[in-house]
Design a binder for these strands. Structure first.
Length: 197
DNA sequence: CTCTCGATGTTCT
DNA sequence: GAACATCGAGAGG
């Protein structure tokens, strides 16, 4: 099984475009054991620049947000609530601090290995941003990771055209943001897909 | 199924 | 010292 890595030019575009194009693509994780896990992206949110008060980068350039200001095609991984790692993909040209947070995945390849890493029943496996990082063994080690390297963690193109329609709406869990940002329809998902969070 | 609540550590004020 | 891009356990319906 071979999964080619999306290259930097894919990520170096307007975040809302990249977000929609990523639906149905495969997040791929190659473990140290050599096993390769793959899961379809079915739900994600865009965080767009310093003007977006929901985006961490709206606080400015700090050690934490530095990676979002850098080259597209890198991973931004951080710890939330002291417990959960969340995975973002950096988009747009360097200097534009933007990223896409993955909210849910549909397991496709080596699902049983994911369930060894995260032994839960049914759709609980990766239908949430903190769950999917757990299931794919992604943590802060992958902060600043180059997703275009095709090693350990990357994204592969859609294996097949989308069969589900695309849903769109406001983002989740950002009560602290300004009203215009709370209402911005910057979350995208595959309508009717059972793995959506 | 729903709701409530506590956990836990990094970041920024 | 507060807030936080969440999860899971436990109680109740």
């Amino acid at each position: 099984m071979h999964f080619p890595a999306l290259q930097r030019d894919f990520y170096a575009r307007p975040s809302l475009e990249v977000a929609q194009d990523l639906l149905g693509c495969l997040l791929v994780r190659q473990l140290d054991s050599g096993q390769t896990l793959a899961a379809r992206i079915v739900d994600l949110e865009a965080y767009i620049g310093q003007e977006d008060t929901a985006c961490h980068a709206s606080k400015g350039r700090t050690p934490r947000t530095e990676v979002m200001f850098g080259e597209p095609g890198h991973a931004y991984v951080y710890l939330i609530y002291g417990l959960h790692h969340l995975l973002n993909l950096v988009t747009e040209e360097a200097g534009q601090p933007c990223g896409l947070m993955l909210r849910a995945l549909e397991p496709v390849h080596n699902c049983e290995v994911m369930r060894e890493i995260r032994p839960v029943k049914g759709r609980n496996l990766c239908n949430g941003p903190g769950k999917l990082t757990r299931a794919l063994d992604v943590d802060r080690q992958f902060n600043r990771w180059d997703l275009c390297s095709g090693q350990q963690l990357w994204v592969a193109p859609r294996p097949a055209p989308l069969t589900e329609p695309v849903g769109r709406g406001p983002r989740v869990g950002i009560d602290y943001a300004d009203q215009k940002d709370r209402e911005a329809p910057w979350r995208f998902w595959l309508e009717g897909n059972p793995w959506v969070s």
